Simulated assay, not measured.
Amino acid sequence: MNMKTVGAIAVLCLIWGSLWGLVKFSLQIFPPFLFIAARLILAGLTLLVVQRMLGKSILPAREDWNKLIISSLMLCVGFYAAQTFAMQFVDSGLSAVLVFTMPIFIAVLAHYILNEHLSRQKILGLVFGALGLISILWPQLHHIHMNLALLGQGMLIGVGFMWALTTVYMKKHFASYDKLKLTIWQMLLGGGLILIGALILEPVHLNVWTTPFNVSILFYISVIGTGASFVMWNWIVSQVDTFVASISIMSIPVLSLIFGYVFWHEPLTVNILIGAVLILSGIVCSSVKIRSFKTSDVIS
């Protein structure tokens, strides 16, 4: 993994790590589905302007539309909309942890669909990451009972699976595709569909959408946290092994837990700290190439 890719991963982790608490806060202001529709459409339109300024083509070829629609539904409905709905019932830090079961799913999917074989090093890194997530979730596993919080937690694990499936689909069908154009149409197609449903199901209060503070939050979440970040993610996936890309961003739930503790007063326990160490160990184990030393390499 070169320094450019490492830098992109670091920036993405900081942005997405800080985003979870802000999204949770936004759900106290905006109706959930109107919020996610506005988030996606604003992100798509901003990227559309950037694509035009760069002088690149905007409209996809006719043969690309079916695959774009499928990837948009998977990403925007199966990931973003489901995640936003479930986060109404679950703390932001815990939400991030549950969604980031994604590398566990992607390891299996990429092995069978993309022929990205599970090496011993990857498996060991995955085990460390899974143990980290279990450590963080351990208190919840002791007190399972049916309520909206449990429903939300189950949905968020499903969101992690859908993200993994979407990532593998994009790697398979859009590996060499213009990443900016790909993200534009994923956001606009999915956001437009969600907007239609939201206008039917949710009330529209204009004062909520015109307050400068609310607009600034929506702008950051949409343009930086969604549009620019997902272009970056699509680029990262195209540069490295899908599994390495997915496990390299497993520091995001750790960062979201820290941000949640500092800014949103969510709990930070010993289990969480142990889990953070295990997750970071998994990242290092999976991403760093370990050289095999031979006798000839040793200098007397």
Score class of each variant (00 low, 15 high):
L131G: 11
S119Q: 09
I184E: 07
L195R: 07
Y177M: 02
Q121F: 01
A110W: 07
P103K: 02
I200D: 12
L131K: 10
I106S: 12
L118H: 10
G192E: 07
E202W: 03
G191W: 00
Q121L: 04
L131E: 08
F161M: 03
I113W: 11
W138M: 14
L195V: 08
K171A: 09
Q140F: 06
I104R: 04
Q121P: 13
G160L: 01
S176K: 07
V127Q: 06
P139N: 04
Y169N: 05
L137R: 05
I144W: 02
F174N: 03
V127D: 06
L137C: 13
G197R: 04
G197C: 03
G192D: 05
R120A: 11
H143S: 12
F174Y: 01
G154T: 12
V127L: 12
I104N: 11
R120E: 07
G152R: 00
G154N: 01
Q186L: 01
G129E: 04
S119C: 08
A110T: 13
P139D: 03
H117P: 12
A107W: 02
L199E: 11
F105V: 06
N147E: 04
I113R: 11
L150P: 05
L182D: 08
V168G: 07
Y169R: 03
I194M: 07
M155A: 10
L156C: 07
L150W: 01
T101N: 11
A164D: 03
Q140P: 09
K172L: 09
S135Y: 03
F161R: 00
A175R: 03
W163D: 02
M187H: 12
M170Q: 15
F174G: 04
V99L: 03
K171T: 06
H117K: 15
K181N: 03
F105G: 06
L165S: 14
G154A: 07
L126A: 08
H143T: 12
M162D: 05
L150F: 05
L150I: 10
Q153F: 00
H142W: 01
P139V: 00
M170S: 09
A149G: 14
T101K: 06
G160I: 01
V99Q: 06
S176C: 03
